[in-house]
């Protein structure tokens, strides 16, 4: 068995030095350009974000992403209800829907919709880290069952990048990563204030923003740009290889 010490030692030797030397490869302070990006993002007004909506509309087309025009919570709620009613499940005939436990999604209050009374709406629950191993395991199994059964998964996102229509999602209690992956249709609802211009802005925030630094990337950060796709048979583009076949994106205009 090769130990870490031996393994790293061989690399140091190959590099022509006796041991790993301390080098300045990790940046410790943002560059002026990065400071400018941070400032621009923080001071950006709602009006300055409007062009991002247009960009999202444009880049959604080649990505095969369904970008919806509804902007108010009430309209978005109605549009999602329509999606749930009109779309067909991929596996089997029974419909159910799973969503994150997330303030924005809670405020949609889909559970109260009379039209959906026959369709189970699951919420990926919080579990206290202090719960017993059995309880944690039971919760995991339940989440798994609900996600597998659901044909639509509804999430929010930490950020949405206009230039590439990329959703950035960290993992947190109540925000299971499989909700954006296993159901055939992924619906994402994002607040307009979470829109960014470019991936560069995203990375600058992840790296230098104090709140982001404090939380870290979490053990699983996903960047999702459009529905699942493949071109592996004769380069013919097909959507829905293993992940969701459809990705519906809603941006909520500032509602507070």
């Amino acid at each position: 068995m090769t130990t870490q010490k031996e393994f790293i030692q061989d690399i140091s030797t190959a590099l022509g030095r006796p041991t790993p030397v301390s080098v300045d490869v990790f940046t410790v302070a943002p560059t002026t350009a990065e400071q400018d990006i941070l400032k621009a993002v923080r001071q950006r007004s709602s009006g300055e974000r409007q062009p991002f909506i247009k960009t999202l509309q444009e880049v959604s087309v080649p990505l095969h992403l369904d970008f919806h025009p509804e902007r108010s919570l009430e309209d978005i709620r109605q549009a999602i209800i329509t999606l749930i009613l009109e779309k067909d499940p991929e596996w089997g005939t029974k419909k159910s829907v799973v969503r994150w436990d997330h303030p924005l999604l809670n405020s949609l209050n889909l559970e109260a919709a009379a039209e959906l009374k026959d369709i189970p709406l699951y919420i990926t629950n919080h579990v206290a880290a202090t719960s017993s191993a059995d309880d944690l395991q039971a919760q995991r199994q339940q989440t798994r069952k609900e996600v597998e059964a659901s044909f639509i998964g509804i999430t929010s996102a930490d950020y949405c990048i206009a230039a590439t229509a990329t959703l950035a999602m960290k993992t947190r209690p109540g925000q299971a990563r499989s909700v954006s992956l296993v159901p055939s249709i992924h619906v994402a609802v994002v607040e307009e204030s979470r829109l960014l211009a470019t991936l560069k802005e995203l990375y600058t925030l992840l790296k230098w923003d104090e709140a982001e630094q404090a939380e870290g990337l979490t053990n699983n950060l996903s960047l999702i740009s459009g529905p699942s796709k493949t071109g592996d048979i004769e380069l013919v583009m097909v959507h829905g290889a293993h992940g969701p076949r459809e990705l519906h994106l809603f941006v909520v205009s500032d509602h507070r």
């Binding site: 880290a129 944690l136 590439t164 209690p173």
Partner: peptide, 24 residues
């Protein structure tokens, strides 16, 4: 790789799922 601005799914994995997370 595929003449894309960014790959469809880019995943950062730092470790196993945290205990209080529902999946992973």
């Amino acid at each position: 790789a595929a003449a894309q601005e960014i790959g469809g799914y880019v995943s950062y994995v730092g470790g196993p799922a945290e205990v209080d997370h529902g999946d992973g």
